[in-house]
Design a binder for these strands. Structure first.
Length: 262
DNA sequence: ATGCCTTATTTCATAAGA
């Protein structure tokens, strides 16, 4: 089984590239983030033509997650129960998680809040959201069946996961509390399935659009695959598909592709 | 070459991304 996760930065803007990529790679299941589309505008028909069912959870302008699958998506759950809201407690919950079962696999596709700056209320929101995520997936993580929570975590697990740690001092994505939140997820029995890079020495998954960052490989590894033992034990290969980050009309994230023997 | 930011919307300007 071929599984992938990809922050597409708008599924509408990315649709031609996404469809080409699906056609070329032919993954069985794909978790998407930042679809940036309301559910009634989701491109179900175009995906169906390539054989994919889709479960989507969108806000419209921001956020948005989805699971595409060639073997259907069952037992769908939207969002994270108990997740905080932003900016106000009474704000509607943001569409940042969707869970479903695709054949033997149970998956949660996540788009973790950015945090903006350590002093920003959004940073507190991010930490609380990650804590709620842990509580929500605890049972699936501890279960015997293969499960993974995967997507854009907006946290670089270690200093090796950013191109220049010195340039990130004082920024989000690298702070101790964010990394502790990831460690808490691993403590649920989840393992970081680290992909191999297809070029250079580190498996970055995100490069800023600006200033030729991609071309200088000034990136970050913030798109993560956290699998339980049944999942991680079935991984044959995992890699960052940096080819999909090239050219015109690309996302600022590359997909992570995982081959599994289930 | 991979090439110097992109997205949707409250659109000719803004907020957000990380």
């Amino acid at each position: 089984m071929k599984l992938a996760t990809w922050n597409v930065n708008s599924i509408i803007a990315r649709l031609p590239r996404l469809l080409d990529w699906l056609d070329q790679l032919s993954p069985d299941v794909v978790c998407l983030q930042e679809t940036k589309v309301a559910d009634d505008s989701f491109p179900y028909a175009e995906l169906r033509e390539l054989g994919y069912d889709a479960a989507a959870h969108g806000d419209g302008r921001w956020n948005g997650v989805a699971i595409l699958s060639r073997q259907g998506v069952a037992d769908i759950a939207y969002g994270v129960p108990g997740a905080p809201n932003f900016p106000a407690p009474r704000s509607p919950p943001e569409a940042r998680a969707i869970t479903g079962t695709c054949g033997p696999l149970r998956l949660t596709s996540v788009y973790v809040p950015n945090g903006r700056e350590p002093a920003d209320p959004h940073y507190v929101y991010k930490l609380r959201w990650l804590a709620a995520l842990g509580a929500a997936i605890q049972a699936d993580a501890a279960g015997p069946g293969p499960f993974a929570v995967l997507g854009d975590f907006n946290v670089a697990p270690t200093d090796d996961d950013v191109w220049d740690p010195a340039s990130f001092v004082g920024s989000t994505h690298v702070t101790e509390p964010e990394r502790a939140a990831l460690a808490a997820l691993r403590d649920l029995g989840l393992r970081d399935v680290v992909p191999r890079p297809l070029k250079y020495d580190r498996p970055f998954t995100y490069w800023d659009y600006r200033a030729g960052m991609f071309h200088q490989n000034k990136g970050m590894r913030i798109d993560l695959v956290y699998g339980n033992s049944a999942f991680a034990g079935s991984v044959d290969d995992a890699y960052v598909d940096r080819e999909a980050r090239k050219g015109k009309g690309m996302s600022d994230h590359a997909p992570v592709v995982i081959d599994l023997s289930l």
